[in-house]
Amino acid sequence: MVLPSFEFLLSSAAAGAALALLSMGVTLTYMTTRVSNFAHATMAITGAVTTLILLDRIFAGFRDSPLYYGLFIVAPIVAALVVGALAVIMYLVAIRPLIRKGTSLIGLMIATLAFDIILNNLLTVVLQLTPAQTVGRLLEANVKGYLVAIYVPLVGYIYPHRLLLPLIALLVAVGLHLFLTRTPFGISMRASIENPQLAKIIGIDIERIYVVSWFLSGATAGMAGSLLAFEMPGISPAAAYLYIVSIFAGSIVGGINSIYGALAGGFLVGSMEAIVPVMLSDLYQLLTGSYVDILRYQRMFSFLLLILVLLVAPEGLAGIKWRGIRRG
């Protein structure tokens, strides 16, 4: 590949968009409740598993019908609701009681790790309880076998989810901006992030804001996981342990205290993990004639980016004074 194809760029944008949504979710719960949620990637995998169950149990029967494409609309919505509800349960059952008991930030972080391990094991159990034939398809078969590509004139065949992911990420970014700047609830969320004590004494119920922020964080994770299911070479709960490092890298590159920064950081890290290794593999092949699959080491690049960004801008992309740079 000397020049990247449209399909390759689209799949890289899809990977970037998924990570943008995931990093934004981690940042949102960190900014509101100061909790670094290590269960976030497993929540996304829950969205992926929800999608696969919907696919296998309901939509597979419509393979040759236009209804089959409904999967790409129904699955992200169902996954968002399921994982959003799961995130709220996690907050109400585990995180809030610990915050009220005065648990330290490290203690809260470990609690999310504990929740992550429990959820990850539960997902494995759910998959094991499914009939063996289904488990085989879910765990081992390449999910892309289920996919149907759509022909787009002048472009060729593309998979719908690859268009949907950047589109959803863009809609979430615009929607979130309008929500935070134009609605009283959104403004109260910004106020609660800025100064929770003042928010309380002027009459804002910040507990309600925390619950909504955990729901939004879970819902976007479920949505991203649902569409990522089509990119994964077979779904396994263990995949969460690879994703979580990229999610946090995106969040930190963007700036851990900025929702917009997290969207940008996540997109940058996700698309770079998809593009750079492939380009390097191709370049190596061009120069030496032999092929090395650098994609296996893709996360190395996101952490190189992380270190570079932190060296230049310790507060991440959001901490850079862009206007000052433009004016020189």
Partner: peptide, 17 residues
């Protein structure tokens, strides 16, 4: 006792949330 990152009107509206 104010939210510096919010505008004056947003501060006042929040106080009547």
């Amino acid at each position: 006792n104010i939210f510096p990152g919010l505008t004056v009107i947003e501060n006042l509206l929040m106080a009547a949330y």
